[in-house]
């Protein structure tokens, strides 16, 4: 049996037995290489389920849909390791109760989809620890290094070029599971912290604020990057910030559902070489 069929059978069982009230998975999208989220409530609906290497979206954000979890009934969800980490973050930030989430874990490498052992988020701790081990390598990126090698002027020009295309559609925000605020700081007009005009200045401010708010929280799922209609490489900034918090505070986002948020905690001996 292919992994897709194995999981399909499991989903049907979970729903038929009433173990979960819903399964969030993938179904075919508008083109052959695209997948759409599939909210499965009955065993029959599971027939449409797809699980292949095109399933890349981190679905965890859908868990926060208004009212979905408020009845405290269990929901199962298909997640890759980055998605599993985002469950930890959402739990650590009290947005959901991880007890309620049943994880159908999978990973894909070289077009090969493999299943991940475990159901509860705690069961993936060893896996996440090993991802953390590899993170310094995994976060490396040639373009990122190229940008780091630039002079500040060149860097500014690079990002100016990128951000000038931003149309403030906030698709990146919409796509990110961690952007769950009811009101985003950009929507705050008393005072207007972020310039709302379509000029590059406001785009700069918006993208800096976004990256700051995701520092130590982004799991690198790439939802934002893929959502951006003008292809701004948002992932680069996020990766840079992930490197930063890992290097400075040994903080790797989504390690556990009790992890302290990096910007709401501190150590007395945090590095401060830059302070005069």
């Amino acid at each position: 049996m292919t992994i897709q069929e194995t999981y399909k059978a499991r989903v049907k069982k979970l729903l038929a037995s009433g173990t979960v009230k819903m399964v969030i998975g993938y179904k075919p999208g508008t083109t052959a290489d695209r997948r759409r989220p599939h909210f499965i409530r009955t065993p029959e609906e599971a027939d449409q389920l797809v699980l292949d290497s095109a399933c890349i979206t981190n679905l965890s954000g859908y868990l926060l849909s208004e009212g979905l979890l408020s009845d405290e009934k269990a929901v199962a969800i298909f997640l890759k390791p980055d998605g599993i980490r985002s469950i930890n973050i959402l739990a650590a930030e009290a947005q959901l109760n991880s007890e309620q989430i049943l994880i159908l874990g999978f990973d894909s490498n070289d077009n090969q989809v493999t299943a991940l052992e475990g159901e509860k988020v705690e069961e993936f701790t060893t896996l996440i620890e090993s991802i953390k081990e590899q993170a310094p390598e995994a976060l490396k990126n040639p373009l990122l290094e190229q940008i780091e090698g630039m002079t500040p002027k060149e860097r500014f020009a690079f990002w100016q070029g990128e951000f000038s295309r931003c149309i403030k559609c906030y698709a990146c925000r919409q796509a990110c599971p961690m952007c769950y605020c009811r009101r985003c700081i950009v929507d705050c007009n008393q005072p207007q912290w972020v310039n709302t005009s379509s000029h590059t200045l406001g785009n700069f401010e918006w993208n800096i604020v976004r990256a700051f708010h995701l520092s130590g929280r982004c799991v690198g799922c790439g939802n934002c990057d893929r959502a951006c209609p003008v292809n701004i490489p948002l992932r680069l900034i996020n990766a840079k910030m992930a490197q930063e918090v890992l290097g400075a505070f040994d903080h790797f986002s989504g390690m556990s559902h009790t992890q302290e948020p990096v910007l709401a905690s501190f150590k007395k001996d945090d590095s401060e070489t830059f302070i005069l």
Binding site: I208, A211, F212, S215, G216, I237, K240, M241, E244, V245, A248, F249, V262, L263, S265, F266, D270, S271, E272, F274, I275
Partner: peptide, 9 residues
């Protein structure tokens, strides 16, 4: 901590 992160950004 915030400075450290924001500065890098």
């Amino acid at each position: 901590r915030r400075w450290m992160v924001f500065r890098a950004l």
